[in-house]
Design a protein around this nucleic acid. Sequence first.
DNA 1: TTACATGCAAAGCATTTGCAGATAA
DNA 2: TTATCTGCAAATGCTTTGCATGTAA
Lengths: 160, 160
Amino acid sequence: MHAMTHNVEPALTRTDILHPKLGLEELRHRLQAAGLRPTRQRLALAHLLFGNGDRHFTAEQLFQEALEQKYPPSFATIYNTLHQFAAHGLVREIALYGSRLWYDTKTGPHYHFYIEDRDELIDIPEQMIPDLNIIAPEGLKITGVDVVVRVKSLPEGYSA
Amino acid sequence: MHAMTHNVEPALTRTDILHPKLGLEELRHRLQAAGLRPTRQRLALAHLLFGNGDRHFTAEQLFQEALEQKYPPSFATIYNTLHQFAAHGLVREIALYGSRLWYDTKTGPHYHFYIEDRDELIDIPEQMIPDLNIIAPEGLKITGVDVVVRVKSLPEGYSA
DNA sequence: TTACATGCAAAGCATTTGCAGATAA
DNA sequence: TTATCTGCAAATGCTTTGCATGTAA
């Protein structure tokens, strides 16, 4: 699968640049570069997460996918690994209503639609949100900006 | 300390207008208008919430305050009441990192700073956030927009 | 060899639920 | 009187932890 495309496509997406069909060796280096030992379990999860473009998921969803692998990590390891990945900038955490944390393999600044009736998270196109020029109050420093637009499906055959 | 200042301050805040030191009767009507029976417990909580300006709080915090009252509602009732208040537009729910839901007595559209090291939630001044002109994708309908800017205190004596 | 990672099961925390008794209308 | 509300305690859902075992460097 490691397609050695030497094309000169003008419009490579950000995703293609960040996650260009990573092979095992590349995943291994990615983890090492982040200061994490490339263990079997971490590689297995990294493969699920970074093997194929941007992803939005919960710990539970990742665990279910991992079950289909040869060395499925335990639930505790899923959580440990996600925290470590988050702490090292490989994934990003997203808080929503409801008690579950969500994760996103796209770590740069961007925002989300949460589709309530499908329990699904998707990116908001960048150009849709203007630059939020927020100034922290005296004595405070901004550590992150979260924007979640909650949406729900319109009934079938409904015309907006 | 009901200081009877009779000053003629030109700048009444939105808060003053919406929650002008509500008396028991007013609270009762407020609940009835929202379609909720004005029970002892609900009045007790409404008093804490709407008696004195806008507030940001968690269920736990409200419970602690309620303990000091003559008829402190049980924990289950705190949760029930908050959900009912939220469903009837008397308070608004806010999701943050961490597992706790926050509530806000100010229900109109506005956004928040969350001060991580103080575990405290405050409003972002309205003029600081531009109108977010977000269009829902085909077949979806916006039900809410949440903006949370996470901040932390700068070390003492630190000059921004 | 040794510090770090993993798996299991138990604990933790915020929240919800079931149900018997209480209360507002 | 009756539908609704309340309180308790037990259950739930997600996440974390303690600790014995395993593994990468």
